[in-house]
Simulated assay, not measured.
Amino acid sequence: MTIFSADTYICDSEKLIASSKKTAQVDNKVIYLPGTDCVVRPKVSLAGYTSYRVGGPAEWYVAPRDITALEASIRYAYEQSLPVTVLGAGSNLLVSDCGISGLVIGTRHLRHSHFEEETGLVTVAAGEAIPGLAWQAAEHGFQGFEWAVGIPGTVGGAVVMNAGAHNGCIADIFVSAEVLCEDGTLRTFTSEDLGYTYRTSKLQGGKNIVTQATFQLQPGADPAVVTATTKHHKEHRLNTQPYDKPSCGSVFRNPKPYSAGWLIEQSGLKGYQIGKAQVAPRHANFIINCGGASACDIFNLIRHIQHNVKEHWSIALEPEVKMIGNFKMA
């Protein structure tokens, strides 16, 4: 069995990779997975499933609502020799205009949460939205997750990439994660297993799927106080970052001791535009969709920024956004 998130690569063709012989036999037909209420659908547009609001179709798309349906989806991919791409909230993702071959598994319906009032342990499913979880923690009087309220992703993606903001990150509160491994078994991974560093973990680019995670927060605080702190972090994000237009959040990792936004701004690129994709005037480490942008516009703007920062500062900016599919250089 092979489970992976497809890598980005550049090509001169904008055609999808041809389907395998097995999938061709059921092309354009809805597939009902036995023993579940799960449906595999062909040629589903992914633009509505990413925060950039761009991207072509998934060759096949499925959105399981529980672990049984998730396992059935993986078995189907294995039986049909399909590569698998996992899609959470699509908030840190750029899907090419060509789309994605194989089976795309959307995890946004995998939702449940459990708060242990005495210990402060919180266990949540991979599809839970990070901002919603931050507000829930505040309502319970649990401290330690206030910083995450402005992160527009899901728990699964946050665990994989060690999401962070306001000097906090997932690694600071992470206890363990339940992971569906490529051999079909469920395993529990600890922080030591994941080898967390800045915005990455050993799960990134791997073949395993996070199904749920447990975090250690601090219980017993006044919910009103925690809510006020959470609200402050939210307002700060809204005041300093462009949330009025589609984006993926920060595009590049910060190459310490610099910030990527400062390097881009000092390179004279704030407001620079390719097609309908623009370096945000409010925050240079954001690329926004001004309306009608293509994934190709965004991709070429990313490459333009990298080239110019390299020319000005001899620093290679590393994308934080994950790019999936075939992209054509301008």
Results as ranks from 00 to 15, higher is better:
residue 1 M to Y: 11
residue 5 S to N: 15
residue 6 A to N: 05
residue 9 Y to M: 11
residue 12 D to Q: 09
residue 14 E to G: 10
residue 14 E to T: 10
residue 14 E to Y: 14
residue 21 K to F: 14
residue 21 K to S: 12
residue 37 D to V: 07
residue 37 D to M: 09
residue 45 S to Y: 06
residue 49 Y to W: 14
residue 53 R to G: 11
residue 56 G to W: 04
residue 56 G to N: 07
residue 58 A to E: 07
residue 59 E to M: 00
residue 61 Y to K: 06
residue 63 A to D: 07
residue 71 E to C: 02
residue 87 L to G: 01
residue 88 G to C: 08
residue 89 A to Y: 01
residue 95 V to K: 01
residue 97 D to S: 03
residue 105 I to H: 05
residue 110 L to R: 00
residue 114 H to L: 11
residue 116 E to C: 11
residue 117 E to I: 11
residue 121 L to A: 15
residue 121 L to M: 14
residue 129 A to V: 12
residue 130 I to N: 10
residue 131 P to K: 04
residue 132 G to Y: 06
residue 138 A to M: 03
residue 143 Q to M: 12
residue 147 W to C: 03
residue 148 A to S: 15
residue 150 G to W: 06
residue 152 P to K: 08
residue 152 P to D: 10
residue 155 V to M: 02
residue 155 V to R: 01
residue 162 N to G: 09
residue 166 H to L: 09
residue 167 N to H: 12
residue 169 C to F: 11
residue 176 S to A: 11
residue 177 A to R: 11
residue 178 E to P: 07
residue 182 E to F: 06
residue 182 E to S: 13
residue 196 Y to Q: 06
residue 219 P to A: 08
residue 223 P to A: 14
residue 223 P to H: 12
residue 229 T to E: 08
residue 231 K to Y: 09
residue 236 H to S: 08
residue 247 S to T: 13
residue 249 G to H: 04
residue 250 S to R: 03
residue 253 R to C: 07
residue 258 Y to F: 15
residue 267 S to I: 00
residue 270 K to M: 09
residue 272 Y to K: 00
residue 273 Q to D: 05
residue 278 Q to C: 13
residue 278 Q to P: 13
residue 284 A to R: 07
residue 284 A to F: 11
residue 286 F to V: 05
residue 287 I to K: 02
residue 288 I to N: 04
residue 293 A to G: 01
residue 294 S to M: 06
residue 297 D to H: 00
residue 300 N to A: 03
residue 303 R to P: 13
residue 305 I to D: 01
residue 305 I to M: 03
residue 306 Q to W: 09
residue 308 N to L: 15
residue 314 S to M: 14
residue 315 I to M: 14
residue 321 V to R: 13
residue 321 V to K: 05
residue 324 I to P: 00
residue 328 K to V: 09
residue 328 K to A: 13
